[in-house]
Amino acid sequence: MTGFQMPKPVLAIEGLTVSFDGFKAVDDLNLYLDRNEVRVVIGPNGAGKTTVLDLICGKTRATSGSIQFDGRELTKMKEFDIVRAGVGRKFQNPSIYENLSVFENLEMSYPAGRKVFGALFFKRSAEVIARVEEVAAEIGLAGQLHSEAGLLSHGQKQWLEIGMLLMQDPELLMLDEPVAGMSVSERAQTAELLKRISQGRSVLVIEHDMEFVKSIAHKVTVLHQGKVLAEGSMDAVQNNPKVIEVYLGH
């Protein structure tokens, strides 16, 4: 327990349990995420992957256990406080504001004017515009800044939502199936995007697409029935007999 050479994990989940009417969707889960790490969580349907993200961002409340982020306990915090503490979360289906322009979608996530009167007197300063343009260039939507977000393709909507998270400059980025429904070339572009944006922050990704997982993951965690079944490099996990059984055994 000296630990002076072990970097302190940015996210430490310990003994996390949530039960819905007696069904334990997440069962005594332990998971540690290091700074600058890209972790992918895989597992069969119903393994509790999305529930873990829900628990971290406060959408679902834990029955017991703790989630420490940067030394702060998230399980008792309000959703918007968790976001302000530096946790950004992308939902499974692209969740953007269809009636607003791409610019306005990104601007909405700019971390200023977040309270009632702040929003009322929020000014679109040169700084805000520069930040929006920077992020738009990052996600490849610089040319569509002023089109309505609802008119974007499915892949572009996914990128836009990632861009909205980038606007907040979160320390922890959580992505729920970011390449679902994307074409092969879009998947490759998303992998490149993730590699770029994971500089200086930790990323937690849920994904089924193994090619994609292989291309981005530093480490893979396999969830099964709310518990960690295996954890390690992609190769180690893929050759783990327990994992093979869970995926192919029935």
């Binding site: 961002c57 918007f80 950004g88 969740s95 504001y97 971390p111 309270k115």
Partner: peptide, 11 residues
């Protein structure tokens, strides 16, 4: 998209 707004840091 109420959830998206909530999880963008707004009360």
């Amino acid at each position: 998209k109420e959830e998206r707004v909530r999880f963008s840091g707004y009360d």
